[in-house]
Write a protein that binds this DNA or RNA. Sequence first.
DNA 1: GTGGTCTAGACCACG
DNA 2: GTGGTCTAGACCACT
Lengths: 122, 122, 122, 122
Amino acid sequence: MFNIDAMSRTPVYEQIVLQVERLCRLGVLKAGDQLPSVRALSLTLSVNPNTIQKAYSELDARGLATSVPGKGCFISRASEDALESAKEKKLSELTETVKSLKADGLTADEILRAVEKALDKN
Amino acid sequence: MFNIDAMSRTPVYEQIVLQVERLCRLGVLKAGDQLPSVRALSLTLSVNPNTIQKAYSELDARGLATSVPGKGCFISRASEDALESAKEKKLSELTETVKSLKADGLTADEILRAVEKALDKN
Amino acid sequence: MFNIDAMSRTPVYEQIVLQVERLCRLGVLKAGDQLPSVRALSLTLSVNPNTIQKAYSELDARGLATSVPGKGCFISRASEDALESAKEKKLSELTETVKSLKADGLTADEILRAVEKALDKN
Amino acid sequence: MFNIDAMSRTPVYEQIVLQVERLCRLGVLKAGDQLPSVRALSLTLSVNPNTIQKAYSELDARGLATSVPGKGCFISRASEDALESAKEKKLSELTETVKSLKADGLTADEILRAVEKALDKN
DNA sequence: GTGGTCTAGACCACG
DNA sequence: GTGGTCTAGACCACT
């Protein structure tokens, strides 16, 4: 269900958060679905339970999931709202990135070519 | 000459590197120009000399500047090449960013709109 | 008869206790009335029998109901006293909540407005 | 600067968050002020550094503070906004609490008396 | 069994 | 020195 890249610079807990987010966006996970238990996931991913816990807390803080002590961690009823705001955050980050590239002297043409290169391939 | 944001998450030394890079790209700094001395810059920016030293070492490693012991740090003669490769690195990072957004389920349309928003404004 | 919210942070057994309490206060349940059997309620609510048992024990401890082994759980004859002390407990909790809001720097005006907002609507 | 009640049911990290929040609201801490370092505070409070770290991460997540690796944790420039939204969250929680008390059959009079009791005293 | 909190101690990049 | 991440192992309330 999850792929962890131990060599990546993005923290393990963040990788998990991002993958849950993506699975929600792709419709694989829906509101009310239960995530694997902290201990179970820590075993399958060979990761410390605390790290999973941190990922689940993050999901909770971002409104994407709800952790219920003694029962488990579930995709939140308001997960679509959280997804939408996460999407907008990412797009505004992209806008800022592009703005700073322009400020660095890159031309609109160069930037657009790099973006379209990514969009065509996939 | 430089603006340092102490509360930014990008390391101070990186902020300096990026600003030298930009000044080169905008033509304010040219091959042969001398950068401020480590001590002088550390005073004007209220930054630890080690941090300035690290920034200059980075500029050296990236081929943008050359530190001459006892004389100072100068914009390299091959700075244009370094600039070019830095530019390509940034553009390929942008391509990767956009690819991951697509993988996250964002549509090409949403992405293009965010990019064009940045290009139009500035 | 009961509504259980599995995703709520308040424990299931507490949800049951609170709902029995409310039904008593509203006059739906009266002294001598029999509550559903542990097994029956565990089936209709899809909840572990232990959880129901714990709810009934709590009701017993709070003086609201009396469990008679082999016969069932009944609303206590002294339920009105229990209700009264539960009410006072809740009101004193509210007082404490409001005090801590004041200590946090919220003005009496803001607090009163929030309270009146709740009282008008319902 | 901080008082930790080890016996309290509210987690230590939350106690710290709440106290920083209160100090901001009272004007003792202002935007740009630096909080004690993780290690220093862990020593003065006799609390594990990880617990302090968690508190500071929470402050970051709530927009009240900004942690800068290698430099320290500072009250955020946008701390007033965070304070405002925290206040509104608390008031809406109060509204919900009062609503549920009404649904439990408590009269508006009883509720108002409990609230005013708290407001008069302080 | 579940999640939540905390301690202890380690390593990293950064200043 | 700073914060950030992670591991290891403990205890708690709740199901």
